[in-house]
């Protein structure tokens, strides 16, 4: 997720919200979420939500299809560092049930409190 997190090779500590994640409308585009990796249940990943259910997504080159439609209660997630990220372009849309938290903000180091966490490419086709 560099450059949003850990821009100076120093690990950021973030506040993560773990409640209110079960509804369909709990997420919106641009949210950063923490979820269990679909390919390895013991791993946690942090990525940005780029598409919600029903959206048509323009995928990156490594995904086998050029565009894809997100199924019900699934999310399209991608890392901000496009060239160094294992994300939905590798394993497809993820189920909302895999999400265990939503990043609220950076709390450490102190000079990065309140950093603007917005970003990510615009992946939804109109």
């Amino acid at each position: 997720m560099t450059p949003t997190f850990n821009p100076n090779f120093q690990n950021d500590i973030t506040l993560v919200k773990k409640y209110g994640l079960k509804k369909t409308d709990s997420f919106k585009k641009g949210d950063i979420i923490m979820f269990k990796s679909p390919t390895d249940p013991e791993k946690l990943l942090t990525k940005r939500v780029l598409g919600l259910q029903g959206d048509t997504i323009k995928c990156l080159d490594r995904y086998p299809k050029q565009t894809t439609i997100i199924p019900r209660n699934h999310l399209w997630v991608e890392g901000d560092n496009e060239f160094h990220s294992i994300d939905s372009n590798n394993f497809g849309p993820i189920s909302q049930a895999l999400v265990i938290g939503k990043v609220v903000g950076v709390i450490w180091p102190l000079n990065r409190i309140g950093t603007n966490l917005s970003g990510g490419r615009d992946a939804v086709m109109n």
Partner: peptide, 8 residues
């Protein structure tokens, strides 16, 4: 298991 199409 949790249903992938409905977390509830």
């Amino acid at each position: 298991a949790i249903k992938p199409s409905d977390p509830n």
